[in-house]
Design a protein around this nucleic acid. Structure first.
Lengths: 131, 131
DNA sequence: TTTATTCGACTACATCTGTAATCTTTGGCC
DNA sequence: GGCCAAAGATTACAGATGTAGTCGAATAAA
């Protein structure tokens, strides 16, 4: 079950931190999150609790404190969200997303390299199934 | 002002219909929306009102009924949302999104063509700025 | 003209979110 | 051993969201 969990924007900030490294004590999570978000410690703890309730993360007790870690797989989640966006906003057409993005921001050389590789893979696969 | 309007998922369904064709009477919008969503007419009307309040759409009176049309530009909105997603989920890296997507679903030939065009444009632009 | 219908406006209400503050428990420090 | 600080649990509360129902006005039907 790739999980039907809905993760709010604020919660996602937390998850991102845990995907980066885990398990982590809440104190450390708080520090990291506060580097980019001006949130009260209590707020972050609340988000941690909610994520636990949603089944998106869990923890091991380590004395009085907890060490949190993700249960939701990052790639799964990324895929799920991007698919949803592509469907909702671009009628399932990935190209719409990419071109919109490319217009607004500049693609990096790395992006382009990566896109080329994806295309190459795709073409190779076509050939094969085409045998 | 590309507008900072937040559009909820349900509201987006309505907007999609209006982007497709406008202006439209609410009755027609209701019909179209109900082809894909099992929502009560009242629900759809509520969403229309909320969109009007948010400034995302507006209407012309036509007798007792209204004919609604979008105020938010589709491309602007698409761009805004996809940028946000790419930032939040892929640290700003478009390639992450594309490759994840490519793995889960098959790219269409059209997607690939479109990606190629985007790359070509990008490369041409590089040359130029490179003069 | 009386009535039934239909429109949009307004109201409703539970849940989710953002954003904490307070309560309770427990490990440390004096 | 007693008190305090800090961790998590619980509570708070306003605004957004999903999902309608009700109300008053206007119109179409009878």
């Amino acid at each position: 079950m790739p999980s039907n969990i809905d993760i709010s924007n604020a919660e996602l900030e937390i998850l991102n931190v845990l995907w980066e490294s885990s398990p982590q004590f809440s104190a450390d999570i708080v520090k990291t999150v506060q580097q980019t978000n001006d949130w009260h410690e209590k707020t972050i703890k609340t988000l941690l609790s909610r994520l636990v309730n949603k089944g998106a993360i869990d923890f091991h007790k380590s004395g009085r404190a907890y060490r949190y870690f993700p249960l939701v797989d990052q790639k799964d989640y990324q895929t799920k969200v991007s698919s949803t966006i592509v469907d909702r906003l671009f009628s399932g057409r990935l190209s719409g997303l990419v071109s919109g993005f490319a217009q607004q921001r500049n693609l990096s050389r790395e992006d382009v390299e990566s896109l080329k590789r994806i295309i190459a893979d795709w073409e190779q696969q076509q050939e094969q199934s085409d045998d």
